[in-house]
Design a protein around this nucleic acid. Structure first.
Lengths: 227, 227
DNA sequence: CGCGTATATTACCCAAGGGTAAGAAAAAGT
DNA sequence: ACTTTTTCTTACCCTTGGGTAATATACGCG
């Protein structure tokens, strides 16, 4: 009767064990478990009891770290969003041509979409957030959109990209990218990096002015981890 | 206090009015109202009471037409899926080259994605369906996927399409298309037909062997309505 | 008209699950 | 050791909303 199955993820709350880890680490663990569950079962079907169970704690303990379920959802989204915006800032700082910038954006965004928090940007329903949080997500989406559109515009201006409808081009590219968050499953044949590289050339092939050669892959095997 | 707003959609149940319309018409009205609400607020936030209210009836009346809320959700999905599959069958029967077939598929699918039931294929969460219904949706998605992949394969075989990774190409195209269901809003600048035509050439430009000319638009102004 | 059937309504049930109150159990401070 | 603070648990509350039972109303038909 006491053959309890081990928790699916290494948890800071080991049963009958030392629980002295730092607060932030625990917060993060909650988020990781929650995203996972939200993605698996959907936000509404996933219960806080289940989240707590996976962490070897009980539901009310979660309220030491978050004020509500929606709070958790929003933080998951925030993490994904921040990762994207960090990369966007980096890429903007590189100050490359429009086409290269676009390709870098595609590669970065694709890789993030193939991660748990990245997928949460696309798999969660905006309607499940409070009104102020909805505003925040909307603003975030717009910033991403603008980054892509700006790269395309710049490319047209600097001659690296063929003239085209900027808005629809961005929609098409972002659509293909966002969809990754729906089909990508960790154990598949393709690694996130492979997908990212493939999409970087694929999605820019038709608007690249030069005969679309593969976008430069600096340090493809060991991508720079920031921070 | 009795300035009651008129129901947002013409409903077969006009208050104090003749309610003798055919059963199927009512079923359909329920579905239309339900999809609308599910898309607006998400499946879980939308209540059956609200669906009923919009139709000038009460919740239990809905159970004359559907066995459960999930039943309604699934039927919404089914309608969208059938529309897609009907068009796929038509296009397959046309027996064009791989490239043209692909372009026809893109155009048809894009137009459907910009409709309510079409969007429901993408905006609803599979996890909200019963297990058998999940199976059904999965099988449906696979059939759509196969149609696109087959067109690409055929195109490579008949020389109308450049050799490419069939799977990823299909993912990219379907991603861009599915995303329409997330951003398209009826009152926008672009009509579904415009989007469909644009995407048909845009998404096939890079893999078309001939210098990508616009796909043939037979009867562009007045598309054939089936049945 | 009266009877059966389909369709709606009112009134209710009840499970699920987010959230809270009160207090135990550690951890940390002194 | 004693107190204080943080963390976690047990026990509970309570709204929400899908679903049902019983019943009323309209419709079709002989």
């Amino acid at each position: 009767m006491d053959t309890r199955t081990p928790p699916p993820e290494r948890s800071p709350w080991l049963p009958f064990e030392s629980r002295r880890r730092a607060r932030d680490e625990k917060r993060e663990a909650v988020l990781r478990t929650a995203v996972q569950l939200f993605l698996e079962q959907g936000y509404h079907r996933a219960t806080l009891n289940e989240v707590a169970d996976r962490l070897n704690i009980t539901k009310p303990a979660l309220y030491n770290y978050f004020r509500s379920k929606e709070d958790i959802l929003f933080e998951c989204w925030t993490i994904g969003q921040e990762r994207v915006e960090d990369r966007i800032a980096e890429i903007a700082a590189a100050d490359e041509s429009g086409l290269v910038t676009l390709q870098m954006l595609v590669r970065a965004y694709a890789a993030i979409m193939a991660s748990t928090f990245g997928a949460s940007l696309v798999r969660f329903n905006v309607a499940d957030l409070s009104e102020p949080n909805q505003k925040a997500t909307l603003a975030g989406k717009r910033r991403i959109d603008r980054a892509f559109r700006n790269a395309i515009k710049q490319g047209i201006a600097d001659g690296s990209v063929k003239p085209c409808d900027v808005k629809l081009t961005a929609f098409a590219i972002l659509g293909a990218l966002n969809w990754i968050g729906h089909w990508y499953k960790p154990g598949g044949e393709l690694s996130p990096e492979q997908i990212a590289n493939d999409f970087a050339s694929r999605l820019t092939a038709d608007i690249a002015k030069r005969p679309a050669k593969k976008p430069a892959e600096k340090k493809a095997t060991k991508p720079v981890r920031k921070k």
